[in-house]
């Protein structure tokens, strides 16, 4: 029991940066170049841990604390999330609500830190992040509510560990809507193309990148790591909704789960390589469409009497 718990935590702590590495390699393939090694995010984080931090005179403790708090919140959310056959270390009735709000807390402190710098560029990025956050959070809640209704539980572990096993056969179209909506939310929350280009050097177009422009050293390491874990958790959720069956053999399920995650990372890499970035004023439209999909799905479920 304890070994499984340790294993779960180890995967949660160690695996996420590899997803970023896979995305990087896929994009490099499409660009016709060799690209950074798969383990590059690990090297980057390791290096940042050995660097000092530079703080500007306009910031105070909020700026220094924010990256730590943000990453801690994301990791805490990770302890609520089941992976493959692993039951999460913490589970209770209603933990899905805490899950969403932990991400909200992470976003909140990072935005506060951006405002703390007093830079107008970061202020702009903060306002964009907050606006998109409003729209994406409500959609995420709706999606999770649909899943909760289908699996008759408000606990993530029960939703994703078998709660949806018959749902694809019964309400397949609804789940398709949920998946599409969720995918769009994943792209927005993790600042991927077509919403935001994580490798851009154009400060005026950045959303997520510009608000972390002033962090350095260990703070930046936290930010980078938190980003990886957030992507990992969202990807896990999405993958668990798409592929709901379990063979109930521990090794096979876990291996298959990682395989799905890798395929998913490659898919994100393909999307990033083949789509152009949206004009910033079109992003709310994208978020609204995600919201509408969820509403449709939700309505169908309600009409069916909640199952």
């Amino acid at each position: 029991m304890h070994i499984l718990l340790l294993l779960h935590l180890t995967i949660l702590f160690v695996f996420p940066p590899l997803l970023l590495g896979i995305i990087g390699k896929t994009k490099a393939f499409f660009a016709g170049r060799i690209g950074p090694p798969l383990l590059q995010p690990y090297f980057d984080i390791f290096k940042l841990m050995h660097k000092e931090s530079v703080y500007s005179v306009t910031t105070n403790w909020i700026f220094m604390a924010a990256p730590m708090v943000s990453t801690a919140a994301i990791l805490a959310a990770g302890t609520l999330m089941p992976l493959a056959d692993f039951k999460p270390p913490i589970q209770f009735w209603g933990d899905m609500v805490l899950f969403v709000y932990l991400f909200a807390l992470a976003r909140f402190v990072i935005v506060l830190a951006a405002l703390d710098t007093g830079s107008s560029l970061e202020g702009m990025g903060a306002s964009r992040e907050a606006t998109f956050g409003c729209l994406s959070e409500i959609t995420m809640f709706l999606n999770l509510t649909i899943l909760a209704l289908l699996s008759r539980s408000l606990s993530l572990s029960e939703i994703f560990l078998g709660g949806l096993s018959s749902s694809w056969l019964q309400v397949g179209p609804v789940l398709i809507l949920v998946v599409v909506s969720f995918f769009l939310i994943l792209l927005v929350e993790n600042s991927r193309v077509p919403i935001d280009d994580p490798e851009t050097h154009l400060e005026l177009t950045m959303i997520h990148e510009v608000i972390v422009l002033d962090h350095s050293g260990i703070d930046l390491a936290y930010v980078l790591y938190g980003k990886a874990v957030k992507l990992f958790l969202f990807a896990s959720m999405l993958v668990s909704v798409i592929i709901t069956f379990r063979v109930h053999d521990f090794l096979i399920d876990t291996a298959f789960f990682f395989f799905e995650l890798i395929v998913f990372a490659v898919l994100i890499g393909i999307v990033e390589s083949t789509m152009a970035r949206l004009r910033l004023n079109k992003v709310p439209y994208l978020l609204f469409s995600a919201f509408i999909f969820s509403i449709f799905g939700f309505t169908v479920i309600l009409v069916r009497g909640g199952h």
Binding site: R33, I34, H215, L220
Partner: peptide
Amino acid sequence: PVFDLSRFGIQFVASPRHAD
């Protein structure tokens, strides 16, 4: 792609705070 600095882990970043 021809020279591809990124394969050595070298990258040009947007902010001096992120740089080495």
